[in-house]
């Protein structure tokens, strides 16, 4: 697929967002991502969970995308894998956790629990549902990435419909 030389007709010209926005994004980006992890891990017995966490992480990615030219945005964009891969890993984790209990003679989606005593953290309550939640998290993040690559200015290398504008 050939990449167009300049901006295609009809797409908004790449303009710099405000300095405030760039700097602000650089400041909050990591905090938002950490918050999303917080939501992800507390989700089992408290408000939170994979979907909410994924959406929060997705917001961070959207911010990074909109800020575009900032170093944090560039790093985030460079570090993100293809949406299809993220979706795939997420789906694999979620569906895999759903069927895993079969191996032990359990029921679909049944969750195992353990309460190990970790040296520094103390008692930790772990559920295998967490892996399912991580899968959901990745699916949502993958979806946000797919949306960005489809609807964003560099549309072309996308998973969803819309990858052929440069015909």
């Amino acid at each position: 697929m050939s990449t167009p030389a300049g901006p295609r007709p009809g797409t908004p010209s790449p303009r710099r967002p405000s300095v405030l926005f760039e700097v602000g994004t650089g400041l909050v980006l990591h905090a938002v991502l950490v918050t999303s992890l917080f939501f992800l891990f507390r989700g089992h017995n408290a408000p939170g969970g994979g979907f909410i966490a994924g959406l929060v992480a997705g917001t961070a990615l959207v911010l990074a995308y909109l800020a575009g030219d900032t170093s944090a945005g560039r790093r985030a964009a460079g570090a993100t894998p293809r949406p299809g891969v993220v979706l795939g890993v997420g789906l694999l984790l979620a569906a895999g956790t759903a069927v895993a209990p079969w191996l032990g003679g359990g029921q679909v989606l049944e969750s195992g629990y353990s309460h190990p005593h970790v040296p520094v953290l103390g008692g930790v309550s772990l559920a295998s549902v967490l892996i399912f939640d991580i899968g959901v998290y990745l699916v949502v993040v993958g979806l946000v990435l797919a949306v960005l690559s489809t609807l964003g200015e560099q549309a072309g290398t996308s998973l969803a419909p819309g990858g052929e504008e440069d015909r």
Partner: peptide, 11 residues
């Protein structure tokens, strides 16, 4: 099973 398959096919 098809969901697992779909995940693998994506990867």
């Amino acid at each position: 099973l098809p969901l697992l398959g779909a995940a693998l096919a994506l990867l």
